[in-house]
């Protein structure tokens, strides 16, 4: 294959994003796009002047962290428990990855239908006599902490991480674990000394990608998130489709902030990996 193509590959894959960033940067200072009136930093000033920005950013980071952590834990547990060998564990692995192709939009719709205060869970609770009206059901969607959104996003991302975890354990985990057993390690010791490190290192890039994606995802968020704090993707879209075109510049400021979140996650990961390599 191409031996010297790394630079070219990087260039090709990054250029469209860089064009997007350039456009947003120009639009954020009033040089491009609807409502642009020549160079001005007004959009930056008013975006940062809005208290909704920091709270929305913090909230999005919380939801992304919680959902990514939940999905990762579930993937590790399922991968560690259902190892190849028996038929039932094969079925379990298949069931685990089944929701993989589900779109975030469909996942969000399901979240509303199941978790809403008048959703299927609430109806079941009503039938069981536990609640007498929707308001008696705990608020799982449009709630301050984003519980329903976190559950839905974790459920949606879990199959992706599980698929990679299965693959990691099948490729490298098995041989290493056998070696560890030959050397006398047992049960829990094998897990913590071999299985866990293999999963953790192998899963990290996917976990970072999931985090960056979840922090910026719009479809499930708009269906399940509260209006205060307003998640960063919602705040961005609200500015982008505001009735007054004057808000478009602010939308591009928020776009750039979202980009910093995604790139920040990647940079942290790369830095951690570099440190890891030096340490070992």
């Amino acid at each position: 294959m191409i031996r010297r193509g790394a630079g070219l590959a990087a260039f090709l894959v990054a250029t469209p994003v860089l064009i997007g960033i350039a456009y947003s940067a120009l639009a954020s200072v009033g040089l491009l796009g609807p409502g642009s009136t020549g160079f001005s930093t007004a959009s930056w000033a008013s975006a940062f002047d809005d208290p909704q920005l920091l709270r929305g950013l913090g909230w999005s980071l919380w939801v992304a962290s919680a959902a990514t952590a939940l999905a990762t834990m579930a993937a590790v547990v399922v991968a560690a428990l259902f190892r190849p060998g028996t038929r039932s564990s094969g079925v379990a692995r298949l069931l685990a990855v089944m929701p993989l192709p589900l779109s975030h939009l469909a996942a969000g719709v399901l979240g509303v239908l199941v978790l809403g205060q008048s959703g299927l869970l609430a109806r079941g609770a009503f039938m069981a006599g536990w609640i007498d009206q929707p308001a008696a059901m705990p608020a799982l969607i449009y709630d301050q902490w984003g519980i329903g959104l976190i559950v839905v996003l974790a459920w949606k991302e879990f199959p992706f991480l599980a698929l990679i975890a299965f693959s990691l354990l099948a490729d490298r985990g098995r041989a290493l674990e056998e070696a560890a057993r030959t050397l006398g390690a047992r049960g829990r010791a094998v897990f913590w000394a071999v299985t866990w490190p293999v999963l953790w290192r192998g899963l990290m890039p996917a976990v970072v990608a999931v985090f960056a994606f979840v922090a910026g995802t719009y479809e499930a968020t708009v269906l399940l998130a509260p209006s205060d704090p307003l998640a960063l993707p919602l705040l961005t879209m609200e500015r982008y489709t505001d009735v007054g075109v004057a808000k478009r510049g602010e939308a591009h400021v928020l776009v750039l902030i979202g980009l910093v979140v995604g790139i920040g996650a990647v940079a942290l990961h790369e830095a951690a990996r570099a440190r890891d390599r030096r340490a070992t």
């Binding site: 809403g116 008048s118 301050q144 509260p226 209006s227």
Partner: peptide, 19 residues
């Protein structure tokens, strides 16, 4: 009044289900 439905479709859904 801590949260508000995103659009009129959500409002209709809450209304239809007696919320």
């Amino acid at each position: 009044g801590a949260t508000y439905p995103a659009g009129v479709a959500e409002l209709h859904r809450l209304f239809a289900n007696g919320e």
